[in-house]
Design a protein around this nucleic acid. Structure first.
Lengths: 213, 213
DNA sequence: CCCGTAAATGACCTGACGGTTATATACGAG
DNA sequence: CTCGTATATAACCGTCAGGTCATTTACGGG
C-alpha cells in the first residue's frame, strides 16, 4: 500500500451513482436474487457496509437501478411520434432509428430482461416500467398510427395492435442479444433487422389500393 | 386424520410428473433462485426429502421443467411450415393459428420468461431452448419464406429477418401477458393480435408490383 | 494544528434454505 | 401372514448472504 495514500476517500456525492452503475452490471448478469451485495460493493470500489449509507436494502438498490434506467430519453421518441407533419413512412423510419440509438446507448435490453424476469417478485417495478416506458411508447405509436389512418396514409385497423406489430420484432432482437448470443447463437443484427422490418411494416401498413376511408 | 387412511402412498410412477408440474408453477411465479424447495414439495403433496428420490438437485428439477416444456409439439408447426404446396398467405395464416394454439395450451410463455430471466445463470438451458425451440422455429419459418421468395410469392429480402418480423410481435404478446397483465395493465388480446399481425405481414411481404424476381 | 464528525470499514450476527439421513411405513412377493 | 425393501418422512446440519454495528479514518472549520 502506497505510503501517504489514504485507505479510502469521502465522496458522498459520487458514491450513489457509482453504486447504481455497479449494481446494474451485477443484476444484469445474475438476476436479482443471485446478485451478491459483496460483489456490487467491490465492483463499486466500496465496502458492503457503505452500501447501507446510501440505500436501505437490496431491494432499494434494485429499484434505484430500474428507475435510473427508466429516466433516459423515451421522451425524445415520444415527442418525435407526436409530430404529425411528416408522411408516415418517413416518421416510422425516423422513430425506428431513434429507438435503435436509445437501445445501443442505454443498457435498455439488460434492464428489460431484469424487469421481465423479476416481475412477479417486484410487481411494482413491472408497473413502473409499464407506465413509464412500454405504455408511453405504445401509446405514442398508436397515436401516430391513428392519425395516419385518418389522413389515409395507413390502412385501417386497430392502432394498438399495429403498434405491437411494429415494436415486437425489436423486443425480440433485444432479448435475443441478451439471451442467446452469449451462449453461442448467431447474433441478431439489430441494425439491419430494424431497417428491413421498417420497410416491411411500411408496405404492410400501406392503404389497400382502392380503399379510401 | 382418517383412521385406516395411510399417511402416504407409494407412487413412484406418478411422482416425477407431479413434481415437475408443481415446480413449473413455483418457478414461473418466483424465478429460479427465489423458488423454495419446500414450496414445490408441498404443492406436489410430498415432503422435501421425497424430491431427492427423483432429482439430484434443485437445478436438476429446473432442467426437467424446461425440458418438459420444450418437448411438446414444436414439431407440428415445423412440419406444417415445411409444406411447400400451398400459397404463402394461407401457409402463414395456418402456422400462426397453430402457434397460437400451442401457446394457449402449454405454458410456453411462463417458461420463456424463465429461460430469459435465468439465461446468464443457466447458459446451457438457454442453449437448449435456443436449439430446440427458437432456432428450429426460426429456421422453419425462414425456409418457408425463402421458398416463397423463389416462387415469387414473397418480396425479396433476408428471410431470417423476415422471420423475426413475423415472430416478434407474438413474443411481445406472450411476454406482455406474463409480465404486465398481472400488474393491472390492459391485456394483449393474443387472438386478434395474431390475426391482424398476420394480415399486416401478408401485405408487407407481398411482392412489389412490377418486381418479378 | 487540532478536533469533531461524517464517511467508511469489516468482523460479526442471524435467518433462511438447499441438501442429508436416521427412522418409519406401505405393500408386493413368496 | 410376514418379511424385505422401495418409498416417504421430518428433524437436522452447514453454508451462505443480507443486514448491523463498534471502531477507525479522512478532512474541513475554527
Amino acid at each position: 500500500m502506497q505510503a501517504g495514500a489514504p485507505r479510502w476517500r469521502r465522496r458522498s456525492q459520487a458514491r450513489p451513482g457509482e453504486i447504481v452503475q455497479a449494481a446494474l452490471d451485477v443484476f444484469a448478469e445474475k438476476g436479482f436474487a443471485a446478485a451478491k451485495l459483496d460483489e456490487i460493493a467491490s465492483k463499486a470500489g466500496v465496502s458492503k457496509g457503505a452500501l447501507y449509507l446510501y440505500f436501505e436494502t437490496k431491494e432499494d438498490i434494485f429499484r434505484a437501478v430500474v428507475r435510473e434506467a427508466v429516466v433516459p430519453n423515451i421522451d425524445r421518441v415520444e415527442a418525435l411520434l407526436a409530430e404529425a407533419t411528416i408522411p408516415f413512412p418517413d416518421l416510422l423510419r425516423l422513430a425506428l432509428s431513434q429507438i435503435e440509438a436509445v437501445i445501443e446507448t442505454s443498457r435498455l435490453g439488460a434492464v428489460a430482461k431484469l424487469v421481465i424476469g423479476e416481475s412477479r417478485n417486484f410487481p411494482e417495478l413491472a408497473r413502473v416500467w409499464h407506465d413509464e416506458v412500454v405504455s408511453r411508447m405504445l401509446a405514442a405509436m398508436s397515436g401516430a398510427l391513428e392519425r395516419a389512418q385518418m389522413r389515409g396514409e395507413v390502412r385501417l385497423g386497430e392502432p394498438r395492435l399495429q403498434a405491437f406489430s411494429i415494436v415486437g420484432p425489436i423486443l425480440l432482437g433485444v432479448i435475443w442479444q441478451e439471451t442467446f448470443t452469449p451462449v453461442g447463437a448467431p447474433p441478431a443484427p439489430l441494425k439491419s433487422l430494424v431497417r428491413q422490418h421498417g420497410e416491411t411494416m411500411i408496405a404492410g401498413l400501406a392503404p389497400r389500393a382502392g380503399v379510401s376511408s
